[in-house]
């Protein structure tokens, strides 16, 4: 069985810089790591591999600048077997449509040239874009079934050809849990609750260092330049700005908890929020 996780290298959350010209995030010089949500995707793929056994393998795919290769090496250190890197200037500025399209073309290539993919696992969303659109968008291109917000993989059966088997997953809903079954191949996007990611092992780190990671540009993926990057994206960021941060309000003072409580309740009534 062949499991593929889509991961992204993203900047650490607390230091955002905006490019004044394009209105997009400035990525140069920011501390970067695997998007925290993708760690759960990698971990789940590795756990399924351990569960199913046989010749199951886990591949990781990313689209990003040259340094994003580090994220793939890190994923291999965490138990993945191979990494693939979609990389080229032409991909810059891609929205979720153009990103999911490029990843789809890469998955097609991997399925054809490496081995057919049975299951794609994405993180719930990235910490920089926050959209959660890539998993379902990929499924649309692949014409595979998909479930997002997966908190548990109850069961998975595959005949390992990319053409059969089923997966049963639990989806966290506002009012409970939906249990769904899909035929493979399929796409899932997972949430934090699904597992506790392991730390990379020494052996894994060595493997990550040594791995040979193919790098594909638009030409290698046979994608027209009309459909990649900023130029191929239906949407653009027309402007970015910092939200007006709340700068704090009133400290409720009082000599006893009761007095503080009374003053607070009064204030809340004044504000008409209770």
């Amino acid at each position: 069985m062949h499991i593929l996780t889509c991961i992204k290298q993203t900047p650490a959350t607390d230091n955002v810089q905006i490019d004044a010209v394009t209105g997009t995030l400035k990525r140069e010089g920011m501390a970067a790591a695997i998007n925290p949500f993708d760690e759960y995707a990698i971990e789940e793929a590795v756990r399924i591999k351990e569960r199913v056994g046989g010749d199951t393998k886990v591949s990781c795919l990313t689209m990003g600048p040259p340094q994003a290769e580090e994220a793939l090496r890190d994923a291999i250190a965490r138990g993945a077997d191979a990494g693939f890197h979609v990389c080229g200037r032409e991909f810059a500025g891609a929205d979720t449509w153009a990103t999911s399209y490029a990843l789809f073309k890469a998955i097609e290539k991997i399925s054809k040239e490496v081995s057919p993919v049975d299951l794609v696992i994405c993180g719930k969303q990235t910490n920089d874009g926050d959209t959660g659109h890539i998993g379902p968008g990929l499924a649309a291109w692949l014409t595979w079934p998909n479930v997002a917000y997966v908190r548990k993989v109850e069961d998975i059966k595959s005949n390992g050809t990319g053409q059969g088997g089923t997966i049963v997953v639990h989806r966290l809903m506002e009012d409970g849990i939906d249990v769904l079954e899909m035929d493979l191949p399929a796409v899932i996007a997972v949430i934090k609750e699904i597992n506790e990611p392991r730390v990379p092992s020494l052996k894994g780190k060595m493997a990550g260092k040594k791995a040979v990671i193919p790098r594909w540009d638009a030409a290698a993926l046979n994608i027209s330049l009309d459909h990649v990057g900023l130029k191929g994206s239906p949407t653009i960021v027309s402007k970015s700005f910092r939200p007006s941060m709340k700068t704090g309000g009133t400290r409720i003072e009082g000599n006893s908890p009761e007095e503080k409580a009374r003053k607070l309740v009064e204030k809340l009534k004044e504000l008409k929020v209770i």
Binding site: I18, V237, S238, S240, F241, R242
Partner: peptide, 9 residues
């Protein structure tokens, strides 16, 4: 970006 940035699309 976790609410640190607003973007108009």
């Amino acid at each position: 970006f976790g609410g640190t940035l607003m973007a108009t699309i």
